[in-house]
Design a protein around this nucleic acid. Sequence first.
DNA 1: CGACTAGTTGAGGACCATCAACAGAGGTGG
DNA 2: CCACCTCTGTTGATGGTCCTCAACTAGTCG
Lengths: 251, 251
Amino acid sequence: MPGQNTKRHAGVPRDSGCLSCYLKALCIPANLSSCEKQLFSQVVTTCVGLDKRAVLVSQGARFDSLYAVRTGFLKQETALDGAEQLLTALWFPGDIIGSDAIGLGRYPGTVSALESSTLCKLPFDSFLALAHELPQLYQYLHYNLSLAMHEERMSLHQLLCRTAEARLACFLLSISDCFRRRGYSSRHFRLPLSRQDIGNYLGLTQETVGRTLAAYQAQRLLRIEGREYQLLDLSRLEQMASSTGRRQKRR
Amino acid sequence: MPGQNTKRHAGVPRDSGCLSCYLKALCIPANLSSCEKQLFSQVVTTCVGLDKRAVLVSQGARFDSLYAVRTGFLKQETALDGAEQLLTALWFPGDIIGSDAIGLGRYPGTVSALESSTLCKLPFDSFLALAHELPQLYQYLHYNLSLAMHEERMSLHQLLCRTAEARLACFLLSISDCFRRRGYSSRHFRLPLSRQDIGNYLGLTQETVGRTLAAYQAQRLLRIEGREYQLLDLSRLEQMASSTGRRQKRR
DNA sequence: CGACTAGTTGAGGACCATCAACAGAGGTGG
DNA sequence: CCACCTCTGTTGATGGTCCTCAACTAGTCG
């Protein structure tokens, strides 16, 4: 349904071979032989390009494909019946979009690009058909779904009983870790999210997010210029992130 | 590792045939033919009995089996480095325990029985071997992992920006729905959790949980006697549960 | 009986949502 | 060029929510 998208790239479908993709160590084919990667490549039908702010899938649309992120940065927003808008997921290069839609049969939120991005589309039917030949693909699916569920559960349960200060520290550190695992700097990165987006992700208001970040800067824990973040004191951030309970005990 | 358990049933291994189990419509074999259920039955090696408070698996133990709940009620507690203790999952009859351990290779929390319970043990190796024959089992796994991830994500993201009042209403309604789906009363049930447990699940303190429940009773929304809960006004509870944002706007 | 656990109640104050006003950046049109 | 709008982010005042600490009751177990 390309018509639904507000903006799109001219669609430069890059050579979509997984063999030559520099993300192959992060993405699905990681533990396939090169012969199997060749097979897998055939499932990757198109390489989708998205401009900044362009919509990949709309909330409620029927699920048919997973997408692997090649370049860029995407978010998922889920609207509830009220005026409420939750930011329910963020994706980096190497991540798979859509694994929360398999069970539901519909995409549970609107996915859009935070920067211009390129993605590999994996039609789920073809994926399952291939998985019948290559059980490693099934395994990949279990392991990753299970791991994602566990990590999501742990981090959200932790956030539930944390102050705004600790929630933001958790958030920045997990973003930092995402960049680190992908070979970028863990201390200096661009995070193209508004204060409002961050607030929607963490269950805080934009004012609180702004004030807390300002307090961090005053304490020389980090430096922010626009949407560029520079983490200056990772160990103290970690300390704040894991500070137990909602409040500091009085002494 | 039965030796790790503090208490156990004498181990009455009931006839473990899935064909005769009255939960078969809820549990994994739901969409298998009766011939395939027969095959599946052979994977279900033992029927484990647990006394109240007995431990099924300890946090950090190596993952080897899923467990299906036949009767009873279980919880998972995860200890973090601090003194923090989170209640990260609850399971009812028909639920599968351990799907958050597949990716990690270890059980992420200590699972114990809130009432005396019986479970079917499904060694994961055998499960995968059988799934190679019966791809429906793989499908079952994907669909349910994906659905569980999505529901967990949505409910926890909602809780993040809700007041104690709304969090508790969400919690009670979701428990009520669990009972309804299993054919029990959705308005009158026994919930063998302490205030502390509920607080650990929702990110609140036991005092706040107690006070909020007392306020509900004063408003005739529900009645509590010990750990018996009777929901008197479901529609107003639903209204509180979905009340948007953290505070009521002033008028 | 004392020891322990689960639950209740009250006082005080930390935390953060809310509302409002404002500043700067970027885009548009005349 | 300027006037105007929108979007994003900042700052301040105010008060509701709920955490913390403490004291107390009731029930259970030895």
